[in-house]
Amino acid sequence: MRPSWMLRLFAAFGLLVLLAPGALVLVVSFSAGDFLTFPPPGFSLRWYEALFTHAGLMSALATSALLAAAVSALALLVGAPAAYAIARLDFPGRGVLATLLMAPLLLPTLVLGLGLLLVLQPLGLVATWPGLMLGHSLVAIPFAVRIMTTAFAAVPKELEAAAWTLGATPLRAALRVTLPNAAPGAIAAGVLTFLVSFDETVISLFLVGPRLTTLPVEMFRYAERTTDPLIAALAMSLIVFALLMVAVVERLMGFTRAMGRD
Rank of each mutant, 00 (worst) to 15 (best):
R2T: 14
A12E: 10
L16S: 14
L16W: 10
A20V: 15
P21Q: 05
A23E: 08
L24M: 13
V27S: 02
L36E: 03
T37M: 07
F38D: 02
E49L: 13
L51R: 07
T53S: 11
G56Y: 06
L61F: 14
A68N: 09
A75Q: 10
Y84K: 08
A85G: 14
L89E: 14
L89V: 09
P92Y: 02
M102K: 09
A103V: 12
A103C: 03
L105T: 09
L105M: 15
G113H: 05
G115K: 12
V119W: 11
W129H: 03
V139D: 05
I141L: 14
R146Y: 10
P156D: 15
A162Q: 14
A162N: 07
T165H: 00
G167D: 03
P170E: 08
L175M: 09
N181T: 06
N181V: 06
A183E: 00
V191K: 08
V191N: 08
F194E: 01
L207E: 00
L207S: 04
R211D: 12
L215F: 08
F220S: 00
A223W: 01
A223I: 10
E224G: 09
R225Q: 11
R225M: 09
R225Y: 07
A233D: 06
A235E: 04
M236A: 13
S237W: 02
L244N: 00
M245I: 00
A247W: 14
V249I: 11
F255I: 15
F255S: 07
A258D: 09
